[in-house]
Design a binder for these strands. Structure first.
Lengths: 139, 139
DNA sequence: GCCTATCGTAAGCGTCAGCATATGATTGCG
DNA sequence: CGCAATCATATGCTGACGCTTACGATAGGC
């Protein structure tokens, strides 16, 4: 029973901090904000949805996400078409260009991430990512 | 080569979010702020130091940490004594009471944390914590 | 057909973080 | 001695976030 360890959050937070610091330059290079990237990711993984649902999915505020969507739309990375079935709602979808950018950015980000894991043994590195994926999938 | 996975940050961030949500009630129950707990932890692990160094150690702003120190001092959880060798500096130390609170809080927090990990197989749970500790130690 | 709920949008609120700057006490170098 | 550096502290700025309220358009139950 190893009670003598730092809290999970105390260990994870600096890690996330580092990761974000690595991500920012990549995002900036592609003119995408963190929220923007978050939106692209969500839309690429699970296409259509309503804005409120999208906001909740990425843990953002319904009203604060609008500016982000405006930018993305103006940049041609997403489309916002009125739902013919319910004209209150806007169907959100990622454009081919948006998909392309999202995947490029992801590739670059994941390359950066390796830096953070370099101190780990290769086996541990794989295990860590695997367990993390499980944790993430089970939310 | 499993390129098809979410970014580390995308998986870690919600996790940290959840963890913090679990921590807040515990901290509130003991009248300690997040920063305060962070300070107590740092001081308990590595006793004396100067305020600027402490601030940097916990990733806080040098000036924004002062209010936290004031509160902790007033609550009798830390001591701020002028360094006799350099009267500009204040030697920071945790009091027995502060140490007691810190350890109580940590115990309760770590109990909460288990909830987040319940979806993992027991073996994975241990492995995850172990790797995380390695990552944390190698910073 | 009405009333309530939902959706996107806009605006305002208080909070908090990071950043910069200023000041007063003190130190240490030259 | 005197000057630059260091430390704790105070303060103000800016930007982000979460939360709340309001509003117009629209749907859907009754």
């Amino acid at each position: 029973m190893a009670t003598e360890r730092p809290d999970l959050a105390a260990m994870l937070y600096p890690l996330v901090r580092d990761l974000i610091a690595l991500e920012l330059p990549v995002l900036a290079a592609h003119n995408v904000s963190m929220w923007g990237y978050s939106v692209l990711t969500a839309l690429d993984d699970t296409p259509v949805r309503t804005q409120a649902a999208l906001a909740e999915a990425i843990g953002a505020d319904k009203s604060r996400i609008i500016g982000t969507l405006d930018e993305l739309q103006q940049a041609g990375l997403i489309e916002r078409t009125p739902d013919p079935a319910d004209r209150r709602a806007r169907l959100l979808s990622i454009t081919p260009q948006g998909r392309k950018i999202r995947r490029t950015v992801r590739k670059e980000i994941q390359a950066q991430e390796e830096q953070v894991l370099t101190t780990l043994a290769p086996a541990d590195r794989k295990t860590f990512v695997r367990i993390l994926q499980e944790l993430h999938a089970s939310r």
